[in-house]
């Protein structure tokens, strides 16, 4: 067993887990933070994306022990009890998600992008979402929502109704 102490969504958490435990399993099974999803479990789909020290990572590919002493932000850390994060709000407004399984990962990838680059181009948004698969939406309304958060306005690039 290894002892892991990490700051999750601003709160210090500790756990004693088998060494092969991934960050995703630690979050879901030990800390009951089930927002990050277990999709492919091999780093293809991005449904498990969380932010570690400011960078988006596939939490299924990172061992819990590698995160010891670091800071993790998950989808649960975005909204407060009375207010959604602007990304969540715009995703809701634009109908950006359908089944929603990819949503936590997509939103965390988008947050990491906007934290680093508050005014991304459409191509930079597409690039930032390149590791997050979505089977439902065609990504268009997600890109629009991220643009809306970034600019407060929308370039007519992703999709529009004629």
């Amino acid at each position: 067993m290894v002892n892991v102490s990490i700051k999750v969504n601003g709160e210090m958490r500790t756990a004693s887990v088998p060494p092969e435990t991934t960050l995703l399993r630690l979050l879901r099974d030990n800390f009951n933070l089930t927002g990050a999803k277990l999709g492919c479990d091999v780093g293809d789909c991005g449904a498990c994306t969380v932010i570690v020290d400011g960078l988006p990572v596939n939490s299924c590919l990172m061992l819990a022990n590698q995160v010891d002493g670091r800071e993790v932000l998950t989808i649960e850390g975005l909204a407060t009890t009375d207010k959604l994060h602007p990304l969540q709000k715009k995703f809701e407004e634009f109908g950006s998600l359908q089944c929603g399984f990819c949503g936590p990962g997509i939103i965390m990838s988008a947050k990491a992008l906007l934290d680093e680059n508050p005014a991304p181009t459409v191509m930079q948004i597409r690039d930032a979402l390149g590791g997050n698969l979505c089977r439902c939406t065609g990504y268009a309304k997600m890109i629009e929502a991220i643009q809306a958060v970034a600019n407060g306005s929308i370039e007519p690039v992703a999709s529009k109704s004629a």
């Binding site: 293809d44 948004i125 597409r126 390149g130 979505c134 065609g138 990504y139 268009a140």
Partner: peptide, 16 residues
């Protein structure tokens, strides 16, 4: 999904 390839955000065209 490593070798069954489906469209990512980078593969999607502009859709009108």
């Amino acid at each position: 999904l490593t070798n069954y390839i489906m469209p990512t955000s980078l593969d999607m065209p502009e859709v009108e």
